[in-house]
């Protein structure tokens, strides 16, 4: 952990099946502390499955995933330790609709981290300010725009103060004019040194923010490298075609 070059996430030959369908094929991926990884690929390529394996929303069948020195298994103790370190932002936000924004944010800190109500609230307000919506604290999620909801969801993850944040297509459910405000918050997070793995098709964001670009197809990592390299000279034909399709539409 003291060695900054040692990977904080390490995936070795990870495979995952949904019945007969192989969602992940022998995936190998290392992520260093503070690294920003962007994963792209056509739908069904396994990119969401890949990051959902990291906090075990999906269980991998073979291979090994090590997060911050802990091997990912069904052992509840290990799982709690890993999930405490890994936050996740979902495509559909998944805010708790019956709770106000502030209650969405304080639930984890109060019940999981054991913070007092006052401390949890102070922490929640700190992160709401960071995502620039402290004035929405007492509203219910349905009263907010999509972009605001996603920013609340990011703040909810941050309240647990994770070392790694996973983003599963965070802007795919948003109207175009709201994508920018969410990407702005994510860019700011990246600048602050947060370790991030982002599944997205926002290539502009990838170019600006990513240290490592990963392209997946049919459950495999087809291409991996620095964005300036992979964007200018894709090694595989599949990635080239994919980029053409995304950039031309």
């Amino acid at each position: 952990m003291s060695d900054p070059r040692a990977p904080i996430i390490s995936m070795r030959n990870v495979s995952k099946f949904f019945d007969d369908f192989q969602a992940l094929r022998d995936v190998n991926l290392d992520v260093r502390l503070g690294e920003r990884v962007v994963i792209c690929g056509p739908s069904g390529s396994g990119k969401s499955t890949l990051i959902r394996c990291i906090n075990r929303l999906e269980a991998h069948e073979t291979g090994e995933i090590i997060v911050d020195g802990t091997v990912l298994t069904d052992n509840p103790k290990n799982l709690d330790k890993i999930r405490g370190n890994v936050g996740m932002v979902f495509q559909q936000f998944n805010l708790f609709p019956h709770l106000t924004v502030i209650d969405n944010l304080t639930l984890g800190p109060r019940r999981v981290l054991g913070l007092s109500d006052a401390d949890a609230k102070a922490r929640a307000m700190k992160y709401l300010e960071r995502v620039q919506i402290p004035d929405q604290a007492d509203k219910f999620p349905r009263q907010l725009s999509g972009g605001q909801q996603q920013r609340v969801a990011i703040a909810r993850s941050l309240c647990m103060e994770p070392r790694i944040l996973l983003f599963d297509e965070p802007t795919s459910a948003l109207d175009p004019e709201m994508i920018a405000e969410v990407l702005e918050v994510m860019t700011e997070l990246a600048a602050s040194g947060m370790t991030m793995i982002v599944v997205t098709h926002e290539m502009g964001f990838a170019r600006r923010v990513a240290d490592t670009m990963v392209f997946m197809d049919k459950g495999e990592i087809v291409e991996i490298g620095a964005p300036e390299d992979v964007f200018t000279a894709p090694k595989s034909k599949r990635f080239g075609t994919f980029l053409q399709q995304i950039l031309n539409h």
Binding site: N55, L57, D80, R83, G84, V86, G87, M88, F90, Q92, N94, L95, F96, L99, L107, G108, R111, V112, A153, R156, S157, C159, M160
Partner: peptide
């Protein structure tokens, strides 16, 4: 299902997930 996943992602226990979410 997303409500369970969001609860899991903030390490909420099964009991708390049921009770609060």
């Amino acid at each position: 299902k997303g409500q369970y996943e969001a609860s899991q992602s903030i390490s909420l226990s099964y009991r708390d997930t049921m009770r609060f979410v």
